[in-house]
Design a binder for these strands. Structure first.
Lengths: 238, 238
DNA sequence: GAGTGGTCTAGACCACAGT
DNA sequence: CTGTGGTCTAGACCACTCA
């Protein structure tokens, strides 16, 4: 653990436990640097983390304050969507029903999203994710075979992401998503058990590896009444 | 303009114009620091920006590479949603029809979202935003009167955000959003001119000022066929 | 003018990858 | 072992706020 992370953790605790109350001025960087016995640059780097998290804000000339919203939003399940459902809903019982598992050559659209050639095979899979017995999301997924090599039905029924991380030792760098509303298709109605006029929340995403190679293109179709997508966007610049 | 931003701009140009091609190794930090006549820490800070933008990735021990995806995603209209429609769609003709403009005491829910007291009045307004003559989004907005003081119908018909920034000199720190799909109400059908079984994409958001005070709570209801919500999430950690 | 946070430096040490 | 990027330091200067 590097110093600035350790300090950020300590400072976060002080905010969450009220040692530094909401809207209060906290000590200046020089005092804090002295207290933690680090240089001021390192202290600032620790505070940068808390600012990114929306816990503090800084006003040049005035000082550093605890944000009014500091005690909210202590959940970040939004951004790490591609970590997989299994990890996100770790309290609940998540199972997967594999509806389709094939290999094929990519369509024009898939080629574009995964940045691959015409004759580079992809896995195509459709999975229904079931949470505590209720149908939750219907996922249509495409992955290049050479990146996700060695998939089996057994893996699909559990967590693909665990396999990717632990067995293949591949790590994600980010994702690009689009969110739409859509009418439900017969397919949705059948598997998600929704009514004919129920809308669908579709999340279309491309997940990238750390080096920027596209790893997965998927469309996740959610029942409109069980899922909302959450985004927090705090202190992005300065 | 600070040094690291200027250097980041120059490096970004080199990537976008192909001076540093896709997937290539770029010079090491020490060489670059020499070239730009800055310290290595400053050079690293410039590269940090490009990494956040998803243009490069760095491998300790190996070097810094241009991401395969560097030439994509050169649009970021997603994250700055609260900058307002007028700014986002600056090529098109955006008008607003004010459907409701009132002042009232907040409901329980509004009190919670805006973190205000029971007797603190709020503006309630409903606007239909029209882009190039087509109904685009129906916005239900609540703002504390003491923060958005002095709103007039005239301002509402143009850009609220311009008024807030330029006249009131208030600046945003971030936003917190939830995205749902929903069935259309009679209200939606009337103003958005959509069919009875058309779904709606609703974006519910709280916008915060830099000091964390909630400034606006709104629900924006979009036609499902004209709007998708885009999120890019690259290199968030490391 | 005193105190704050933001930037920048020159140099050091460390962790890691490739040889 | 060499070269890479990540961290950390001690000190300097600057921009800004507030009394």
């Amino acid at each position: 653990m590097v110093k600035y992370e350790a300090i950020a953790n300590e400072m976060r605790q002080r905010i969450l436990t009220g040692t530094y109350p909401i809207e209060s001025l906290i000590p200046d960087q020089i005092s804090l640097a002295k207290e933690f016995r680090v240089s001021r640059m390192t202290m600032k780097k620790a505070l940068d983390i808390l600012a990114m998290e929306g816990l503090i804000y800084r006003q040049r000339g005035s000082g550093t304050f605890v944000m009014k919203t500091a005690l909210l939003n202590q959940q970040d399940s939004a951004v790490n969507e591609y970590e997989g459902l299994t990890k996100q809903l770790s309290g609940k019982k998540v199972t997967s029903k594999v509806i389709e598992f094939n290999v094929e050559f990519p369509s024009e659209e898939i080629m574009k999203h995964l940045m691959i050639k015409k004759k580079q095979p992809v896995y195509k899979l459709v999975r229904l994710r079931v949470v505590d017995g209720n149908p939750y999301v219907l996922e249509h997924t495409y992955m290049p075979v050479d990146l996700a090599v060695g998939l089996t039905e057994e893996i699909l029924e559990q967590s693909i992401y665990r396999y990717i991380h632990e067995e293949l030792d591949l790590h994600f760098g980010g994702a690009f998503r689009k969110i739409h509303a859509d009418k439900s298709s017969h397919y949705d109605q059948e598997y998600l058990n929704c009514k004919i006029d129920d809308p669908i929340l579709e999340v279309e995403q491309v997940v990238y590896l750390k080096d920027g190679r596209p790893f997965e293109y998927s469309r996740s179709r959610h029942r409109y009444d069980t899922r909302s997508y959450t985004i927090s966007d705090i202190n992005r610049n300065n």
